[in-house]
Design a protein around this nucleic acid. Structure first.
Lengths: 210, 210
DNA sequence: ATTATTTTGTGATTATCATCACATAATTTA
DNA sequence: TAAATTATGTGATGATAATCACAAAATAAT
């Protein structure tokens, strides 16, 4: 745990803070598709992502989903932070897109570290900023782009997060993430394939052009 | 200045912090439609809203807009905070929807106060949370609602923020905020009027049902 | 190997919204 | 007051995406 923590966080956190995190943090391995945070959960702490990829989705009352953004190593879930600090409920669902490793930090420390470590304050503020910006990008996509552009962005973004040039996914799964229907996705994918941007296989999409 | 500050912030900030704000804060009055923050601005501080209403919009490269949310008294602009702290550029435009009063806080103090005042830490985190939640609501609207529902939500939200039951606005202005066309808005407004939810006048929309 | 299930492909139809074109009404300006 | 400007109303048409219905291909289960 310390090893990976130092690998990805030594440029972010002071040594003393890393020591504290090792002491109080709880290491956890998530298997693919495991739910880390669910709608309405009260967070008793926040997760630091050491390895892997986490999908953050929003759900409406009818159970329909829309992807907000992905987290990758070095990220934390700002929504959890919010929920943990204010004892409120989380408005999102976080699912491991692939096997992932996290460190769970108890909420008691969150404010304490704000006083003790400048690097922690910076990290928290930075995390919020990154998340606000991701949300703005999501809003941009929804407001300004058509389905085909959104789809292509989805594919390239996800490939980047997953550190793969091929995605193992079905058309239906993409449709869920983008809150549309499988038929629409299938047709647009075929179109992107004809444009030479991707190559389609069963359960797999190769991205040829980034 | 102190008077209004105490009126809206005495339950939020410690007395000593209010004293400091009075000392270093710069009071400013904004006239209607004045731009407080523009796209690409580097923020030298953050605004605390004392009175009035501020509209936060996002713009894409083609100059097309979409409303993100409104600020009202007691709010601050989390995006500015982000930009001020990180010396980055602001990704939004903030415009006074009506005459407003703000206190501008210099960025040098922002981190200092994090150490000194628990109430400041709470305020900053709370502000980010509120903004994240507003963004999620905006995403919900875009992803899950049709134009008519979005429009009705826009009208009632704005009325609430403006503390009025009538809005002085044109169909075109609404269309800009919602990133659609005037024709669409006119037709949907007429429909809402037929449903008895609003009453239309020239340059004015009365909201009959909240 | 046969059957069942999952995944993808595709035509047809409909709904929503975008866009064009122009009319009419209210208000301002000259 | 006449002309110009601004705001709103409305028909027609087109584009995008949603939905239905079903076929075909690939894979998994028995």
């Amino acid at each position: 745990m310390r090893e990976k923590l130092e690998k990805y966080y030594s440029f972010v956190f002071e040594k003393e803070l890393i020591d504290e995190i090792v002491q109080v943090g709880v290491y956890k391995k998530l298997r693919e598709n495991e739910i880390l945070v669910d709608l309405g959960d009260k967070m008793k702490g926040i997760p630091l992502l050491l390895e892997g990829a986490i999908k953050i989705v929003r759900e409406d009352k009818n159970g329909e989903e829309i992807l907000l953004y992905f987290l990758e190593r070095g990220d934390t879930c700002a929504s959890s932070f919010a929920s943990a600090i204010s004892n409120g409920r989380c408005g999102i669902r976080a699912t491991a897109e692939k096997e992932s490793e996290i460190i769970f930090l108890p909420k008691e420390k969150l404010d304490e570290w704000m006083l003790k470590y400048k690097s922690w304050r910076t990290f928290v503020i930075e995390s919020y900023n990154i998340r606000l910006n991701e949300m703005m990008e999501t809003i941009d996509s929804l407001a300004f782009m058509n389905m085909s552009e959104r789809l292509y962005k989805y594919l390239t973004d996800k490939a980047q997060i997953m550190r793969e040039t091929s995605l193992n996914t079905t058309h239906q799964d993409i449709a869920y993430d983008m809150h549309t229907s499988r038929v629409v996705i299938s047709r647009l994918l075929k179109q992107l394939e004809n444009e030479g941007k991707i190559k389609l296989h069963r359960n797999k999409i190769e991205i040829l052009e980034f």
